[in-house]
């Protein structure tokens, strides 16, 4: 029974990983790639790590897997935030089909003042 749940979680995790990587290849600019990659790969890897709990039972391996889920859920969005901010500050423009960019407007306004 618990092995079945483990296989289901493992399949869901791998499918989301593959989807995230397809997004990484297909989408047009850095920010959209970061969206697809961060969300899908984070949840996919968390599901794979959770499936360890159902395969091995409650022991040293699964406790470490749960801690690893916690670390990934904290660190992955923070890294995405840092990379997107650095990309914007180093002058990478948004994709040409983008609608609006309030951040660039506000930053240019702030740089003109002093």
């Amino acid at each position: 029974m618990s092995e079945t749940i483990g296989y289901i979680l493992l399949t869901v995790g791998i499918v989301f990983d593959v989807l995230g990587c397809i997004g990484l290849v297909r989408l047009p600019d850095v920010y959209n790639r970061l969206q697809a990659g961060t969300k899908c790969v984070t949840l996919g890897t968390a599901a794979i790590l959770l499936s360890v709990l159902f395969f091995t039972g409650f022991n040293a391996i699964s406790v470490k897997a749960l801690l690893c889920i916690w670390f990934i859920l904290i660190t992955s969005p923070t890294a995405a935030h840092a990379i997107s901010r650095a990309a914007h500050r180093s002058g990478i423009r948004l994709w040409k089909g983008s609608v609006l960019d309030r951040y660039a407007e506000d930053r240019e306004g702030a740089e003109d003042k002093p």
Binding site: G6, L10, G13, V30, R33, S51, A79, A87, S90, I92
Partner: peptide, 29 residues
């Protein structure tokens, strides 16, 4: 651009974590 490569490297690291998890299921260590 360089940020594209950084994003890919970040995601590559997360995939390696998943790889280690699957390997620990197989070997039970």
């Amino acid at each position: 651009t360089a940020p594209d490569r950084t994003v890919a490297i970040d995601i590559l690291g997360t995939l390696v974590v998943g790889f280690c998890a699957i390997w620990s299921i197989i070997t039970k260590r």
